[in-house]
Amino acid sequence: MVDKSLELFDCGHRACGGCGPAMLARFILKGTGEDVIVVASTGCMEVFSTPYPETAWKVPWIHSLFENAAAVASGIEASLKHNNRTEKVVCICGDGATFDIGMLCISGAFERGHDITYICYDNEAYMNTGIQRSGATPYDASTTTSPAGRMSMGNSRPKKDLPQILNAHGATYVATASVAYPMDVMKKVEKAVNTPGATYLQVHAPCSTGWGFDGSKTIEIGKQAIECGLWVNYEMENGELTKAKKVRRVPVDGYLKAQKRFRHLFKPQPVTEEIAKIQAIADANAAKYGIDINLNK
């Protein structure tokens, strides 16, 4: 059972105020418990939590490079297995490390089926280097490398469906979650680490600095993403969708308006055509995962 009172992530780290990933670090470790080894990729969380010698991690933790956490974790798992040790191996990596540069190592590790859990804290861009777009950046979000401008509406491609890609690798458990629902995150982490084989958890972790909202609203923004259907919390076990959080869906406008990264869609005039495309993404999500609560039934 998850022990909510377990504190394995120390204060004094250098994350921005209201940081979604910092909240998530706490939730994850409450879900794993102490018998764990954490593998980090280069990124915001790594940098804000481990400037030598001030580590915020009270569990064994290792960082090697940006792209190789899944391979490092594979080696750790092999060593543990050889020596009959019990620690769980958990990667905690950003979306750039996961969706983009780390794909090679992740694909290898999931194909080999190591007993590891890979958790992506998804703040939908390269935040550590200054908010550049990644394969996880949503359609039309303005970032420093996909800026909105006279000839651009921001990021031109939709978010990559990584959970499905890892599902196709034969992952035994694939789930999405959001920092807006801490208990759900903890339970899914607990389930992931206790499911044999390679498991994947992708957690929506709003970034006030990168998305452009007040740091007090991190959880509120996370909830809005779910309520409009642009983020869906679901679980897949052995390839089958077993659970998806149902919502009474609201239009995407409110979620978009709350963040500076989508400001160009509303100012000076609402770009209805683009907002409609984003609404269509939410509608497709709703249909695919069956999240709409139908009031007529």
């Binding site: 080894i37 593998v39 290792i62 090697s64 490079l65 792209e67 190789n68 899944a70 391979a71 490092v72 974790a73 594979s74 080696g75 750790i76 798992e77 092999a78 060593s79 543990l80 090679l104 190592c105 694909s107 290898g108 590790a109 194909e111 080999r112």
Partner: peptide, 17 residues
């Protein structure tokens, strides 16, 4: 493994353990 990048990364992880 699927690449040399992973081969040595695996060794690093195991060595660190």
């Amino acid at each position: 493994v699927e690449s040399e990048l992973s081969a040595l990364s695996v060794c690093l992880g195991a060595s660190a353990t």
